[in-house]
Design a binder for these strands. Sequence first.
DNA 1: CTTACACTTTACCGATAGGTACAAAATATC
DNA 2: GATATTTTGTACCTATCGGTAAAGTGTAAG
Lengths: 186, 186
Amino acid sequence: MMVRMVYERRDVIPLIGEAFRRYGFEGTSISRLTEHTKLGKGSLYNFFPGGKDAMAEAVLDHIHQWFETEIFKPLDELNPSEALDMMFAGVSKYFRSGQRICLVGAFALEETRDRFSSAVCSYFDRWIHALSGALQRSGMNSADAGTLAAEVVAGIQGAIVLSRALMDETRFAAIIARLAQRCRGG
Amino acid sequence: MMVRMVYERRDVIPLIGEAFRRYGFEGTSISRLTEHTKLGKGSLYNFFPGGKDAMAEAVLDHIHQWFETEIFKPLDELNPSEALDMMFAGVSKYFRSGQRICLVGAFALEETRDRFSSAVCSYFDRWIHALSGALQRSGMNSADAGTLAAEVVAGIQGAIVLSRALMDETRFAAIIARLAQRCRGG
DNA sequence: CTTACACTTTACCGATAGGTACAAAATATC
DNA sequence: GATATTTTGTACCTATCGGTAAAGTGTAAG
């Protein structure tokens, strides 16, 4: 077994993710990634023999894992009220009040959706079902919980778009607050 | 004055817009635009001496004009209930139940936002204010109307993201229906 | 018919795209 | 320390990128 190196595959995935966030999938060139990761082309293709597509796949998987442990699992297992607080606080921090985009949402809007459709689909599907489950455990009936869950997940995506478009972080916070309120039955 | 030709500048703008929608700004190459518009490179640069940026600017302007006459003006001038119906019906048709993306929203997520920030910002600003005005005329107080307007515009953007991610048009319709219901005070 | 101008076609430009080849260097195993 | 394996740097490949130049073609006004 090798001793932990400064740059392993798993260390470079978040850096690639940030580059995709900033420039989009098409707008991120390999040479831009070498600057951003401080890794040569050879190293990049050594870690990701599948090229840019494989990098995107790895990034999407990494994101899904983060949400799985930080958001989805708590929604499944914790008591609903606590889990909902955790979710809204978690996404506000993760998306930096809308200044950091949701890469999965951005991919859904691009042509790249077709290339990574299963990753994109499973992320949102998992989120909605986890949220819907928590809402049901908090006393909501199944149909209402499903509708509200989809509404909330969509609302978060929309809040990112809007706060970035208007370059106003407070928009994100305001919309998130309203969504949280409605989950509490307001 | 010249006789109306088959391809004028204004005829080609929607075609360029559709290409941007499908492939994104970075993903749309000039050669792809020549195929999509059936115009040579020379013709394109004759119509848009500023290149791809000028094309995007023209497309954004064209979109804003469409919304101005079909959505924003009615919200300003018609009676609120009628204007709201028109808005929800209009966007559902325009975005083809989420299968056709909002280019302005997509630009807000990309790096291109910085290049076209004023067009992106004014589009959403205008929409929110027009909607807020209609909601106020329907009896809502100013603060609530402003909050709900932002929520609805964000919700529409989120509905596009979600329905595309899940490849399910019915999601779009369901979320739009709920947003409409809340505008009617439900 | 001629002149003027709008439009199109074609060839071309340097830069950069994603990707490969391969030798050198670093590291791990024995 | 010798050997096997990973990791890295560099040079290189073809294709395409956005954009330009200029000659040619069509149309319209005088």
